[in-house]
C-alpha cells in the first residue's frame, strides 16, 4: 500500500499523523518554555534570545511554516477522526459510560480546540503584536537597545501583557489545559507510534506526567512572577 495514502486514509495512518505532529509540537512547547524562562535571568538575556530568533531570517520562516503545518495536520486529523469516531458510535449509553477512560482522554478535542484558539490569540499578541490587549499598549513600538542596536523589548511586552489580569488568566487557563492535554497526549503519542511495550510502559507514563506538570509549572510561573512583582 502506498505510504502516503495509508497515512491520510486509514485510521492508523491518521493516528500516526496525529502522534507525529504532536511529537514535534511537544518539542516546540518544551523549547518555547525553556526560552521563555530566561525572563528570570533579566531583560538583557531574554531580549538577546528574542533577537537571536528574529534574526534567523529564512530559517525562522522555515521553522514557522513547519510548525504551522504540524498544527494544521494535528487539528485536521483530530477533526476528521473525531467526526469518524462519532459516526462509529452514534448512540450514548443511558446507563453512563466511559468506563476506565480518563477525563483528559475523553476531552482531547475540546482541550485541543481551546488551546488552538489561545495560540491564535497568543500569536496575534506577541508575534504579530496586533492590538489585542485589553488596555491600550502598542507592543510594536516597545523597543530597547541591546549591544547598541535597537531591538524589540520582549521583556517589557511580557510584563505589560501579563499585568492585565484577564490576559494572564486566559494564558494560565490555556497552558493548564495544554498540560492536561499532554498528560494524556504524551503517553498516547508513544502508543500510537507503537513505541510502547511492557518494559517501557511505566517510564513512558511517568515521563508524560512529569513533562506535562513541568510545562504547566514552567509556563504558569511567568505570569505569576509578573503578578507577584518578581519580574517587573
Amino acid at each position: 500500500m502506498n505510504i502516503l495514502r495509508a497515512l491520510f486514509q486509514t485510521t492508523l495512518g491518521r493516528k500516526y499523523l496525529m502522534a507525529g505532529s504532536g511529537l514535534i509540537l511537544f518539542g516546540f512547547v518544551v523549547g518555547h518554555m525553556v526560552g521563555n524562562l530566561q525572563i528570570f535571568l533579566g531583560p538583557a538575556v531574554l531580549n538577546r534570545y528574542a533577537h537571536f530568533l528574529q534574526s534567523l531570517g529564512e530559517l525562522l520562516w522555515v521553522v514557522r511554516l513547519v510548525l504551522l503545518a504540524m498544527v494544521g495536520l494535528h487539528i485536521g486529523a483530530a477533526i476528521l477522526l473525531t467526526l469518524e469516531n462519532r459516526r462509529a458510535r452514534p448512540l450514548a449509553y443511558e446507563g453512563g459510560g466511559a468506563y476506565g477512560a480518563s477525563l483528559a482522554s475523553r476531552t482531547m478535542i475540546y482541550t485541543g480546540l481551546i488551546i488552538a484558539a489561545f495560540v491564535v490569540y497568543h500569536l496575534l499578541h506577541f508575534t504579530v503584536r496586533a492590538p489585542v490587549d485589553l488596555t491600550p499598549h502598542d507592543l510594536a513600538t516597545m523597543k530597547t537597545t541591546l549591544d547598541g542596536k535597537e531591538v524589540h523589548d520582549v521583556y517589557r511586552m511580557v510584563v505589560v501583557g501579563f499585568q492585565q489580569p484577564l490576559v494572564a488568566a486566559f494564558y494560565i487557563v490555556a497552558v493548564s489545559l495544554l498540560s492536561f492535554h499532554l498528560g494524556h497526549g504524551v503517553a498516547a503519542m508513544f502508543q500510537s507510534l507503537g513505541l510502547r511495550n511492557r518494559a517501557w510502559n511505566p517510564a513512558i507514563q511517568r515521563f508524560g506526567q512529569v513533562a506535562s506538570w513541568a510545562l504547566a509549572i514552567g509556563y504558569v510561573s511567568i505570569p505569576l512572577a509578573v503578578w507577584l512583582g518578581l519580574v517587573k
Binding site: T11, N85, Y99, G100, A188, R198
Partner: peptide, 25 residues
C-alpha cells in the same frame, strides 16, 4: 466502520480476558 483508537483505555478496562493495551501499541 470502526472508529480510531484514542488510547482512552476503556477497552482494556472491560475486556473479560484482560487483553492489554500493549497489543494495540
Amino acid at each position: 466502520g470502526f472508529g480510531a483508537c484514542t488510547v482512552t483505555g476503556s477497552c482494556e478496562a472491560v475486556c473479560p480476558k484482560n487483553i492489554s493495551l500493549d497489543f494495540i501499541a
